[in-house]
Amino acid sequence: MNNSKYIIIIALLLSLGLSSCQQKYEPGHGLKEVPEGRIDIPEIEALLTFMGNSGDYINSPTFPSLINAEDVFENLNSYFIIDIRNNEDYRGGHINGAVNIDIPNLMDYLTKTVAASAYDRLVIVCKNGQTSAYVTGVLRLLGYSNAYSMSYGMSSWNPSIDYWSDRVSNKYANKLEIKENALSRTYPFPQIKTGQSCGAEILNARGITLFNTPTNRLMIKADRVFKELDEFHIIAYMPKEIYDQGHIPGAFHYEPKQSLNKEDLLNTLPSNNKKILVYDYTGQTASFVMAYLRLLGYNAFTMPMGANSFMYHILEANGKPVFEKSKKVSDFPLIKGNTPTDKEFEKQINSSTPAPKKEKKIIKRKKKEVEGGCS
């Protein structure tokens, strides 16, 4: 009798797949039914299993979820835009219809105020695309499968808002390293303690924690990185051929969309609170990665503007994403003040007759950024 009981218990555990409790998990609308029962395993194991069973976003074709300004402008009637800049910047000029929400209030807003799933896309906007990518990464992991970050932020919307041009440089292009650094050590996964016992609840608790952590503490500039190289475990999140042409000294290569899961190289990341610095071409994809790592409990950071901030010409010469104002910046209208919508502008957008041409020419992009691309 006892043997039969143990067999039943083991079968139940296997059927649960080390997952979590029965519930229809939302805030996001992208996560589905969760198996019944609770299992007494480390929270990080339950979280990793749940996230893997929910689409493994970090390694999925839709990663990273970026959208360009032109696409947003052409779909103002069907996209819901959340501007996470400070209120002063928002009042100075925002996208028509965009609401201004502080990051710590975002979860409450999306679960209690607006039906996010009713919109084709939920577009998160910041000043330069770094913070919005991080926030969008958290939302995607929480199940908001229609969440997107606007590439290059408001800097790509109107030339009067430019947080990019004076932040790109070649300052450390002559300090790069060519040799490959071998990953020779493994670590246990971080021990997270939310007090929850199923993957869905742990995920939600971690998301709330991330949204309550000031984002200005998560960006470390190139000057500090090159000065304090030994303080970081550095992830060069880019294809091997670019890594081989020159990377931050001591940086390790991690292949995008395949290396950061528990079956591959996730256990090569230090879980002893050592700073993990993720960089890529523009800092935007790296911000998505940072969201994933911080949600798992790693002490992860990114570099503003990524490699654009210290090896711009090398990227440009290799045809990799760089910020060029003439190509990346449109000339779309700005709405002033605290009111999300300008009625006259909205009438023009909704009108069936063509809008009159503006004096300033809208600059069209030569290449359209797409979801799942590298940036």
Rank of each mutant, 00 (worst) to 15 (best):
I314D: 06
P356H: 05
F301Q: 09
G153I: 14
G319C: 11
E241A: 13
N68V: 09
E36K: 09
V278D: 03
Q258W: 00
S287M: 06
K175A: 07
N77D: 15
N77G: 00
S351E: 08
I39R: 05
T209Q: 15
P188G: 05
P321T: 06
E180S: 10
S145T: 14
G129R: 01
A147M: 13
L218Y: 07
N68D: 15
N272Y: 05
S54W: 03
E177F: 01
D331F: 04
L229S: 01
L176E: 08
T111F: 00
Q130C: 01
W157C: 02
N174L: 10
V168Q: 01
K336F: 12
L13G: 00
M290R: 13
G97N: 03
E255I: 04
S149M: 08
D102F: 01
Y243P: 10
N59W: 05
F252A: 05
G297D: 09
M290P: 00
A236G: 07
P333R: 06
L31S: 01
N146M: 13
G199I: 11
D108A: 02
A98Y: 03
C21N: 14
E36R: 02
Y134H: 07
I335P: 13
E359N: 04
A286S: 12
H94R: 13
L334R: 11
N75T: 14
I248K: 06
L315G: 10
L16C: 08
A173I: 14
N75A: 10
D342P: 01
K320C: 04
E177L: 07
T282K: 04
M305V: 13
G199L: 11
S352V: 14
N87A: 13
L293F: 08
S15C: 13
I103W: 00
N146V: 08
F211G: 09
L334P: 07
H247T: 02
I81F: 02
H94V: 06
A291S: 14
L176H: 03
Q245A: 09
I124Y: 00
L47D: 04
V289I: 15
E371R: 10
Y134Q: 05
I276E: 08
V329L: 06
L31Y: 07
I9T: 03
A205S: 15
I349C: 00
L16E: 01
T136G: 01
I202N: 05
T282W: 10
A251Q: 04
Q348V: 15
Y254Q: 05
S132R: 01
D264K: 15
P159N: 06
S160D: 15
H29G: 08
L269N: 06
V114Y: 01
S15T: 11
I202W: 06
A317G: 12
G207R: 09
S149Y: 03
L295W: 03
N87S: 14
V34L: 09
A236W: 09
A222P: 00
M311H: 05
K274S: 12
K367G: 01
N350T: 15
N272W: 06
S145D: 15
A118Y: 02
L18D: 01
